[in-house]
Amino acid sequence: MKQTGETRSDSRVTLDNVVVHPGPNGSVHVVASVERTWTQTSPDDPESRSGPSTRGVVQPIESTISIHVFDRCGNVTEIQAPLPRYQDGTDGYDPCSGFVDPDGTQHEVCQDLGGAAGSGGPTGTKAWNALKKCANGGCRSELFGWDYSTKGIVFEAGAVLIWAYNGFASSPLKASEWSAYTNVKPTGSFGKSKVDKFVLNNLRLEIKTSVTISSLVLAPGISWPPSASVSESGQTGSLSANAEAGVRGIRIAPVKFSTTCDDLFCGKANRLKHQATGTLSLYEQCKSNPSKPKDCKIVSHNISIQTKYWWAETVWPLNYDETDGGDT
């Protein structure tokens, strides 16, 4: 532009179709359609023209975008950030592309996500979503579920699985991280009254996560970590943990595992199922001044994340992003 003498003015960014949905650990994802317009003037054409970018050429000054973050209390925070990259129709843009990681990886959000989500994102007081995203020869499965049905209580649970696998039976599937978490957070003024304090001091949490590896032929052996419980078939491993009364968060420390192929006829890992279940036991419907458990009724809340099978291969052509979701 500088060489041709062209200039741009009145640059504007318009946000449309803004969708907000919760992410793990209290994070919030905001997805929107972004349109940039400007007035461009050329020495050979003094008349101004305006329109959206069609050639992927950016302004000589750093462009920024306003990011609006919504929290659960209805507050809005505006963040001015530089645009992470510039694209146009010739760059192979996927209209289903949703949010972008700092490494530039795009993640699909427009696929139907069942009861928890869809084109409008996850909704409801009890639901879950799951995302498998792949980059640089590896894949990450991230599960997140929530239960906000108890007034004053935010109950969340999730799990993470990171692995690499080239699809050959003679090569192991290597999981570099397998972990899970659950937590409870009081909101608003909950926790100030005697009843609320009794409820918080006596709640109990439990978290469980499992991985099942599927094969179309004879399944490969799996070297599960010592802390895992293994099914009779040997194809499903699970991790679990529970906490003492009043503990508001559990995190299962990350462990590793891999497949083995010592048999001449063993098959390869075709798919894997990643699941998690969080359980919260609360004393509810308490008397006005509870002092012991029998003064209340115990109620169990469950976040059960039962995903479909993900493709095990983390290389082309099966290393595409996948999503799933539903009601808890």
Rank of each mutant, 00 (worst) to 15 (best):
V69W: 00
P46S: 12
K208G: 05
V230Y: 06
D112K: 08
R12A: 14
F144Q: 00
K268S: 08
A164L: 09
A135H: 10
G137P: 04
S97L: 12
T260F: 02
F144C: 03
W178Q: 06
G23Y: 05
G98H: 05
S170H: 04
G237D: 04
D103L: 09
H29Y: 14
S238L: 04
K132M: 06
A219L: 03
Y93G: 11
V217R: 09
K133A: 07
F198I: 00
A219G: 08
D196A: 09
S141G: 09
T212W: 02
T212N: 08
Y165S: 07
W163Y: 10
L318Q: 14
V299N: 06
T39Q: 11
N242H: 04
C139E: 01
S240T: 14
A175N: 04
S179F: 02
G145M: 03
F144Y: 10
G137M: 08
A117L: 03
K273M: 12
L161G: 02
D101T: 15
G326L: 03
S33D: 15
P46H: 05
L205K: 00
G137V: 06
G221S: 03
D324W: 09
K132S: 07
E177M: 10
G158S: 03
D88A: 11
L143H: 01
G221Q: 11
S288T: 14
K208A: 08
R12G: 07
L173C: 11
F99M: 07
A130G: 13
V247T: 14
L318W: 11
S50L: 07
D112S: 12
N319P: 03
S193F: 10
V100E: 14
V58Y: 04
A243T: 03
V299Y: 00
G137K: 11
G51P: 02
S223Q: 13
V76I: 15
S215C: 13
Q59S: 15
I298K: 11
S50C: 06
N289E: 13
D103C: 09
K273H: 05
R55E: 09
G89T: 10
Y320G: 14
P186M: 01
W224L: 07
T307E: 01
G167C: 03
